[in-house]
Every structure is written in C-alpha cells, then in structure tokens.
Amino acid sequence: MKAQKLMEAVETLKGDLEGSLIATDIWSVNQGISLAGYNSQPKAVALFNKVTDMINKTLTGSNFPELGKYYILDLVDEKMVVIIPMDEYQWGILLNSQTAPLGLLLNIAIPNAISAFEEALIG
C-alpha cells in the first residue's frame, strides 16, 4: 500500500465533493487507526470499524452476499456516511447530505474513490 497514493485518493475525493465533505479517513481494519484522511475522526473510525464488523459477522453464514462495494447511512442532523470496505482496509466518508448530490456521490465520487483506493492498495 502506498501512503502517498492514499493521500492523493483523499485529495481526489475532496475535489469531487467540494464543500460537502466534512471528514474522511482511510484505516486498517486490524488496528482501527487512520492511515490517511482529512479532518480525521478517530472516534468515528473506531465506531464504523465496529459497524462493518457487525454487518460482516451477521451476513457470514447467511445465504446472502457479504458486504461488497460500499454501504451508505443517511443520518439525522443532515449527515451521511459512506463506508468502502477493501480487504484489510476501509474508507469512511462523512458528508453533508443536504449539499452533496446523491447522483454525484454514487456515480462520480464513490467510483473515483474506489478506483483510487484500489490503486493505492496495489501500490
């Protein structure tokens, strides 16, 4: 994994989402600690590491697919969280749901983030 490319991925996301991005972190699942980010939120990293683990554990053993590309939570207080699981790493994105157009998020920002993330992990 290349740290520089992770930072570049974060910068790309910032560019795509402009003022709607509140915070973002890329972290390792085992450590639960941020590796790269913007306005880093350690508590949220720990929380969503736990959430992803809970979802994975619940889905494991069921007949349904395990987590794949991403999951999105629309939260009260006009916040939205996107989590992109990628093997041993996860990318969490906290944004303002009022100012972030969902189309831009789903069709531009998240696909760009996933491909930048994959690139950084391959090195």
């Binding site: 979802i55 619940t58 889905l59 069921s62 987590l67 590309k69 991403y70 939570l73 939260l75 009260v76």
Partner: peptide, 30 residues
C-alpha cells in the same frame, strides 16, 4: 438478517453518541 443488522446498528450508534439513522441505509454489493 437485515432486521438484526438495523437493530445492532442502531444500538452501536446510540452507544457511541453518533446520530441515528434518518432516511435510509443502502448497501451496494460487488
């Protein structure tokens, strides 16, 4: 399965003082 996930999610967010789920929860698979 997803009822359990939503309930657990609700509890985790609550425990950590994070905002509750508002409108939706979306999962996109591979």
């Amino acid at each position: 399965i997803y009822g359990d996930i939503v309930n657990n999610l609700d509890n985790i967010l609550d425990e950590c003082g994070f905002p509750d789920i508002d409108k939706y929860f979306l999962i996109r698979f591979r």
